[in-house]
């Protein structure tokens, strides 16, 4: 494994830990999109079906997959629990979390139907999860634009996730050169995803670093 991939995976892991730590320590879910978190659970559950088939790739691979599935479900449960422990915060979240995810789900189904490695249930679900991951952050970004303010938790979380995506691109270049391997599907969806993050960071840079607060244009 090359350094870009290890750093990318660690950054992905870090983003999840930041999210869990903040929800638990502050007992607030303000600024976090429930829809994005449900989509990530769906992404991991549909992608890592090979775990259930006992297709062993490596110890690292198995541990990480189990962690991603378990932590994403845990986050959804934490957010649901706040319905009782912090009803005001929960209600506010529901009000601003209004992105229509049915389009993302339908679009990912369509993309999986047209672009896949083979027409088998596992390969189709794998492709679906790749396309869905590329857009799963949109409800979260949409929520930020609507509320017009970004809590530092959410920006740390999005930064760590964006870093993970960005690092996967040099990882693919590395793999192309050292292993002569190339996965058009994963790379195309990955580039789309990175572009979505870049767009967010560009706006964030313009609005926040240049000191105007985060009121994103809609």
């Amino acid at each position: 494994m090359n350094p870009f991939r290890i750093l990318g995976d660690l950054s992905h892991l870090g983003s999840i830990l930041i999210l869990i730590y903040t929800i638990r320590s502050t007992n607030t879910i303000e600024g976090i999109s429930f829809k994005t978190q449900v989509l990530y659970s769906l992404v991991f559950l549909t992608r890592y079906l090979d775990l259930a088939m006992f297709k062993f790739i490596s110890f690292y691979n198995t541990i990480m997959k189990v962690f991603f599935i378990a932590s994403s479900i845990y986050i959804v449960i934490l957010l649901q629990k706040s319905k009782k422990t912090n009803p005001i915060s929960y209600k506010e979240m529901l009000l601003t979390d209004s992105f229509k995810i049915q389009y993302l789900l339908l679009g990912s189904c369509g993309m999986a139907f047209f672009f896949h490695h083979s027409f088998t249930p596992i390969a189709l679900l794998w492709s679906f999860s790749i396309w869905l991951e590329s857009v799963a952050i949109l409800p979260q970004l949409f929520m930020l634009t609507k509320s017009g303010k970004a809590k530092s938790i959410t920006t740390h979380y999005i930064f760590a996730l964006g870093l993970y995506r960005a690092l996967y691109i040099p990882n693919w270049i590395w793999r192309y050169m050292s292993e002569s391997r190339f996965d058009k599907l994963a790379i195309s969806a990955g580039i789309i995803q990175t572009l979505i993050y870049s767009d967010f960071f560009y706006i964030y840079y313009k609005k926040v670093i240049k000191g105007k607060g985060l009121a994103l244009p809609t």
Binding site: M64, A123, Y176, E179, S180, R181, F182, D183, A186
Partner: peptide, 10 residues
Amino acid sequence: VSKLPFKDEL
């Protein structure tokens, strides 16, 4: 160039 899917990635 091998075009096998990147199933080893996360």
